[in-house]
Design a protein around this nucleic acid. Structure first.
Lengths: 259, 259
DNA sequence: CATGTGTGTTCGCATTGCGAACATTGATAA
DNA sequence: TTATCAATGTTCGCAATGCGAACACACATG
């Protein structure tokens, strides 16, 4: 995920380009690239090898990264950065009891996520059982277009924001059921907005079904949603709507205006 | 948490001081300080107001922070930084199934944590029910000295590392039962090392009891531990040892050398 | 209304971080 | 085994970036 917009001169004397590059270096690491040489990081971020070397050595010196003589890897201290956000908003802390209650009442997994760019990020989760092949802990991110959480949030953005999103998003099929036509996604978002919830059946992953509602924050802002997920083979869409939607709405209502 | 060691000239031309300051700015935010002015950040980090202003504006421009005209706050994008670590190590992903199995078998909450400095950081968790007053999601941190996870890891550090840790740690009492004598903690760590597990009863929080075992990583390194927590009123220490320890040991054995 | 304090901003300048050139290492071909 | 080449890591002269003292502004207080 090379951050090529670093090349754009901002002409802004208040901008600290070194911080931008440093953060890009951190984000160069991911599941497919857990250990990187300085040349790897230079290629992924578009900065020179000399610069990559300086940032990596700085991160190592500050204990945010480890070095084994050739490869760099991130260290647990990096979690302080994400924790700074989670603790500062207390999102997890305040949402968790509601998600656990939902899980307990429905016997299914429940999550909350926030929209960040074109992705949703999980900020709290209560899992009764494992129904997905990928682990979804706090901090995990998924594309918004094919998740009920993403659609429940996107549906409440301004028409201009929705159109801008539809224009730039690439609707990659995750399953044969994934909506890949932008007109279809636009209609699904409009429907979600009308009915006050979003339902996604096997668009993200085969066998997975989920329903989500938006959480109305202060100033009627909406960037958070709550959901319930279940296996499509065990729970039909109609059951989700009849059994789970009231529970979600109750939780959302209790949390209205508290964020 | 002012980072005053930034004032030390490192004389190191490979060190990027701007990155150090930028990361310190991010870490200035926490639960007690979710929204800060640039003057607040300057005070907390020890940098000038002008510098604080540049870093905060840079973070805002990169969408890592928000600005309302006077106050700055972190944005969800910051979670990408912690996610870079979690996804790169796949720790949560690989540990989660084991913790869920432990939770299912024992009916109690199970967690995994990694040692980072003098704290433990939660990296995976399976909670059957809420038994603590504080939420403990991934990224949460607790002091190592009064947690079973912390002791299960500390017990396996080198004697020099343990002595260095005992010298610098401040054993603040969290409850009347917290060990506050360093000789007592040293003995508890030695006992944990001998018996292969650590047990903590109501030292972190009243009514909370937990048992943890270390996870032996590659090269016989130990920086991760697994635990089970329960309410002291419901489960005695002896029950934990008899019923829960085998389950933990089994999981730890299955994961031996895989990290 | 004047003064003092706290907070935010500017711009001349020095230090910091840059990257071209060099050094080292490892792979490959003869 | 040796020479050559490519890839990767490192250095240091230098200019651009980030610094902070001084200034500007806003608000509180007497």
């Amino acid at each position: 995920m090379a951050n090529t917009d670093m090349d754009e001169p901002t002409g802004d004397r208040d901008f600290v380009a070194s911080l931008e590059k440093g953060l890009a270096v951190i984000e160069a690491f991911d599941a497919s690239r857990p250990r990187l040489t300085l040349t790897d990081v230079a290629k992924l971020t578009g900065i020179t090898r000399a610069a990559a070397r300086r940032y990596l050595r700085t991160l190592t010196k500050l204990n945010y990264a480890d070095f084994d003589g050739r490869y760099f890897s991130l260290s647990p201290r990096i979690l302080r950065l994400g924790y700074a956000y989670l603790s500062s908003t207390s999102l997890s802390l305040r949402l968790q009891p509601f998600l656990e209650k939902i899980s307990q009442e429905t016997g299914e997994s429940s999550s909350a996520a926030v929209l960040d760019g074109d992705d949703i990020v999980y900020i709290a989760r209560s899992a009764t059982r494992r129904i997905m092949s990928i682990g979804l802990g706090v901090g995990s991110r998924l594309p918004a277009y094919c998740t009920s959480l993403g659609r429940a949030i996107l549906a409440y953005q301004t028409p201009a924001e929705i159109e801008a999103y539809l224009e730039r998003v690439k609707l990659e099929p995750k399953t044969p059921k994934t909506l890949t036509q932008k007109s279809d996604l636009r209609a699904a978002l409009e429907a979600a907005r009308q009915q006050g919830y979003a339902m996604v059946s096997e668009e993200l992953e085969f066998g997975l079904q989920s329903i989500a509602v938006p959480l109305i924050q202060k100033n009627d802002k909406i960037t958070i949603a709550l959901n319930i997920s279940a296996q499509a083979a065990r729970v039909s869409a109609q059951e989700m709507e009849e059994r789970f939607l009231p529970t979600l709405r109750e939780a959302s209502e209790a949390l209205r205006y508290t964020f």
